[in-house]
Simulated scan of single mutants.
Amino acid sequence: MGTITTPDGTNLFYKDWGPKDAQPVMFHHGWPLSADDWDSQMLFFLSEGFRVIAHDRRGHGRSDQTDTGNDMDTYASDVAAIAEALDLRDAVHVGHSTGGGEVTRYAARAERGRIAKAVLIGAIPPVMVRSDKNPDGIAMEVFDGFRVALSRNRAQFYLEVPSGPFYGFNRDDAEISEGLIHNWWRQAMAGGAKAHYDCIAAFSETNFTKDLESINVPVLFLHGEDDQIVPIENSANKAIKLVRNGRLKVYPGLSHGLFATHPDLINADILSFIREG
C-alpha cells in the first residue's frame, strides 16, 4: 500500500499486491466507496497469479478530501498518473458504477500499451440523467434528492442506500447481509462530503458516448437485470452498441452490487474474459 501525489498536489492512496512482473488488474470503485470494496476480487485475482491494484478516488477513502477536481476528466488523469507511477502495462481495468465511467474515460485516452482490456460492471455509461437526447434517462430530481439527503444527514443516507436498492435488499426474497451494509457505510463515511457531493454530478451528467466509441480494446459489460441504481436499459444495453469490440452478460435477478453479493460468479466471468486470446 502506498500513495502518489498528482500534478495538482493531491495524495492518492492505493494498494498494489502481487508480483510486479505479472499482468496487472486494476480495480475502480463506485461512489462513494473506496478500494476496500474490491477485497474479494483483489484476493481472488492475486491467488490466480495477477498483480492487483486498487486506489481510493480523490475525495474518497484514504485519499485527500479534495474540494476541487471531482470530475471525470480529473479522475481519468489521476488513473493515468497511477499507471505511470507504477508502470502498469497491458493492464485489465475493472470498474463498477462510477468506477466504470472512470475506466471508460481512461481507456479512451490511455497511453498506447497501458491497457489491454476493460470490464464495466453495473457501469454508468453512456449517460444517466434524462435529457432531450436521453429521454428514458433518470430525472434530474432524483440526483437533486441525493444532494439534499447527503447535505442534511450523510450518515443516515449512507445507511439507507446499501440497506435498500444498492444490493437489492429491498426485495421480498432478498438474503440480507448486515456485513455488506455496514462495510458500505464504513467506506462511505471515510470520504469527504464535498467530494461526494460533487461526484453526484460527475456520475449522473457526464456523457461517455464519444469515449465508448474511441475505445480500441475489448470491453466486457456485466450488469444485473434488477439493477435499481443504474438501470440496464439506460446503460449497458446502450453502451454495448457504441464500442467496437464489446460483449454484454446480463445476470437475471441480480442487483447493482452484484460483484459483492455474488463474487464467485463475477470473478469467474472476469477471469475467463482476461484469459481469452
Score class of each variant (00 low, 15 high):
2 G>M: 12
2 G>S: 14
3 T>F: 15
4 I>A: 06
4 I>P: 02
6 T>C: 05
6 T>D: 02
8 D>E: 07
9 G>A: 14
10 T>R: 07
13 F>Y: 15
13 F>K: 12
14 Y>W: 10
15 K>F: 03
16 D>S: 04
17 W>M: 10
18 G>M: 03
18 G>Y: 02
19 P>K: 15
20 K>N: 07
20 K>D: 00
21 D>R: 13
22 A>T: 03
24 P>M: 12
24 P>G: 01
24 P>A: 09
24 P>H: 05
25 V>C: 02
26 M>G: 01
26 M>I: 06
26 M>D: 02
26 M>N: 04
27 F>Y: 05
27 F>S: 00
27 F>H: 02
30 G>P: 00
31 W>H: 13
31 W>Y: 13
33 L>Y: 02
34 S>I: 00
34 S>F: 00
35 A>M: 08
37 D>W: 09
38 W>S: 00
38 W>C: 01
38 W>M: 08
39 D>E: 15
39 D>G: 09
40 S>M: 12
40 S>C: 13
42 M>T: 07
44 F>E: 09
44 F>G: 03
45 F>G: 01
47 S>V: 09
48 E>Y: 05
49 G>K: 14
50 F>D: 00
50 F>G: 00
52 V>K: 02
53 I>N: 00
53 I>Q: 01
55 H>S: 10
57 R>I: 13
58 R>Y: 00
59 G>T: 08
59 G>I: 10
59 G>L: 11
61 G>Y: 02
62 R>T: 01
65 Q>S: 07
65 Q>I: 11
65 Q>F: 04
66 T>R: 11
66 T>Q: 06
67 D>W: 13
68 T>D: 06
70 N>K: 10
71 D>K: 12
71 D>H: 14
74 T>P: 04
74 T>G: 06
74 T>Q: 13
76 A>S: 07
76 A>F: 04
76 A>T: 07
77 S>A: 15
77 S>L: 09
78 D>K: 13
79 V>W: 07
79 V>Y: 06
79 V>R: 09
79 V>I: 15
81 A>Q: 12
81 A>F: 03
81 A>P: 01
81 A>G: 04
81 A>V: 10
84 E>Q: 14
85 A>H: 00
86 L>D: 02
91 A>Q: 01
92 V>Y: 00
93 H>Q: 11
96 H>M: 12
97 S>R: 07
98 T>L: 15
99 G>S: 08
99 G>D: 01
99 G>C: 08
99 G>F: 01
100 G>C: 07
101 G>N: 06
102 E>D: 08
103 V>M: 09
103 V>Q: 05
104 T>V: 13
105 R>Q: 08
106 Y>C: 11
107 A>M: 12
107 A>F: 06
111 E>L: 09
112 R>F: 07
112 R>P: 03
112 R>W: 05
113 G>C: 13
114 R>L: 09
114 R>D: 02
115 I>D: 00
115 I>C: 06
118 A>P: 03
120 L>V: 11
120 L>N: 04
120 L>A: 08
121 I>K: 07
122 G>L: 10
122 G>I: 07
122 G>N: 08
123 A>L: 08
124 I>F: 04
125 P>D: 08
125 P>F: 06
127 V>N: 05
128 M>T: 06
129 V>H: 03
130 R>M: 05
132 D>R: 13
133 K>N: 12
134 N>G: 03
137 G>R: 11
137 G>Q: 11
138 I>W: 05
140 M>V: 14
140 M>N: 11
